[in-house]
Design a protein around this nucleic acid. Sequence first.
DNA 1: CTGAAAGCGCTTACAG
DNA 2: CTGAAAGCGCTTACAG
Lengths: 344, 344
Amino acid sequence: MDLKKKRVTIYDIARALNLTASTVSRSLNNNSRINEETRKQVIAKAREMNYRANSLASNLRKGKSQTIGIVVPRINQSFFSNVIAGIESITNEKNYNLIICQSNESHEKEIKCVNTLINQHVDCIVISVSAEGDDYTHLQNVIDHHIRLIQFDRVVEEIESLKVVNNNEQASREAVEHLIKAGYKRIALLAGPQNLDIFRDRKAGYLKALRANKVPVADELILDADSNNEHDAELIRSLLTLPNPPDAVFASRDDFLALGVLEVANDLGIKVPEQLGICGYSNENFTRITTPSLTTIDQYGVDMGKTIAQTYFELDDKNDETAIEIKTTSIKPKLIARASSQRK
Amino acid sequence: MDLKKKRVTIYDIARALNLTASTVSRSLNNNSRINEETRKQVIAKAREMNYRANSLASNLRKGKSQTIGIVVPRINQSFFSNVIAGIESITNEKNYNLIICQSNESHEKEIKCVNTLINQHVDCIVISVSAEGDDYTHLQNVIDHHIRLIQFDRVVEEIESLKVVNNNEQASREAVEHLIKAGYKRIALLAGPQNLDIFRDRKAGYLKALRANKVPVADELILDADSNNEHDAELIRSLLTLPNPPDAVFASRDDFLALGVLEVANDLGIKVPEQLGICGYSNENFTRITTPSLTTIDQYGVDMGKTIAQTYFELDDKNDETAIEIKTTSIKPKLIARASSQRK
DNA sequence: CTGAAAGCGCTTACAG
DNA sequence: CTGAAAGCGCTTACAG
């Protein structure tokens, strides 16, 4: 006993107007040569009957969905929500839809998201991979199903796709040189999960900065933080209570880790920035409002998002699958020097 | 010249196995009485051929999409991202998909989001309306198209749908009574846009608290803040520089406004909490880390999200459209008293 | 347990 | 400019 009334279809409109579904469809999509009079009638009747197109049907027929799927670790981190906003600003004009999914940093969930998007026949999948995991056949799968793949920020090098990234190595190098210039001598690195390229690059930038400035590299000052905030405090505490502790920390994983450093330092009675300099990564909103405010690196998320969408539409215009250059677009991030890294 | 190879369909699998599409479909959906041997063969072959179901087709055929659409003002505000996380935790188990849209506080964009979701044939739309706007025919439209509508937090009373809300009046009353008990005497209210129920309720709670405690109501201490952060600073400055200024502010719109109060106070050299008490709303992540930390109200976003999803599935189980009670579930929010409201 | 057939709501060559 | 017909990839009553 299904009481649901059925929705109005183009056939209902056609019947009401003594036309065929073909004509109704053409009128609604203001496509080919249609009598202007007919079109107006159809549009009016459609409105009157409160008609809504069935995207499932039209997408199935057309073989494309005008939809872009986005997979990010977390939608509520500034960087990712900025990228999403950037993408949206472009797709809105083009009347494309966005399906946003979050992997919650779980590799398993990420695979699920990607598979769902493949099933939904999205035209493009935009992804920044989760910290876990090392098997990327699900990304290859996207390509194999003829869906455009665009990776950003946390990209998997060996998967051949369009990529939009920051120059992480350079930004990290600048950040560490900034700390050196501020007079810090024992600069620790809290690195992100080293299975991801971006975090390896940041570590490389750190090492280059030290070497270029003849600052000795101390292995005990280099620690890997996983993506799980719960373990941050212990890790930081172990670092700051070393017999010969650091006088600065570059929390290259993200600002949440930098905030953790600030909090543990407060806890231990270590003065920031006098006794300890801190630099984070990502320019999260909160970095501006801590005391002292946190030095960090802005990744230009909105610009990255726009670039991603533009890249997609450029290729879509060409529509020539053989000619895709697997190009990587790099955006230069910017050091935001604030109080946490400036000794009086 | 379309070079796209076509995807594998159930017909391809059927052909490879000398079966019919019917049998393949049944095997893949492990539905009815299918020979276990056949099923195993089909599954194996599907995997071998890298088959992916076409959700567009199956949803079109089934007339439902196992998808829930969510429309929120902003995905990167703690409260909304918590609600989304809560919904996700339930829908994940049930293998439902989520389409997340943000209205960016624009009424026009909200209408566009809702219409897109209607066209996509989602089974349910979960929405918290934007601050702008007073015409809600787009919500009525959802119902008219036999899509389940669930409103939360910022609900429109006159639209008959399921609603999951906080008791805003009570929470606000408690917040203001907390300020009174802390010794503040001239408590200002920065209210949110008064076209929305929740902000009217919060104002009502404020007024009740004052009256119940025989604190005089001063009209010049009650200001409406719109949803646009850009105007906050001026508004706050005008309030704090009154000839007879307030000694506390309840920023009932949200914590961003409370943060603005803290910043303007710092600017003006007004000491918080000694000279000025502050209370915000929503328990944004950053409220914990300001100096002083901000008193606020936790809305239990994750719980609200879970309740929303559970409510949907309960009704879905009944599947009896006539018997829907248009019930409203209310969740009691909780005052989080921190340093910004506690005089030494 | 399996097959043949219809149909979900569209769009689009093909005719006229 | 409009119509008739096929088909997108599935699912599901109806037979057997």
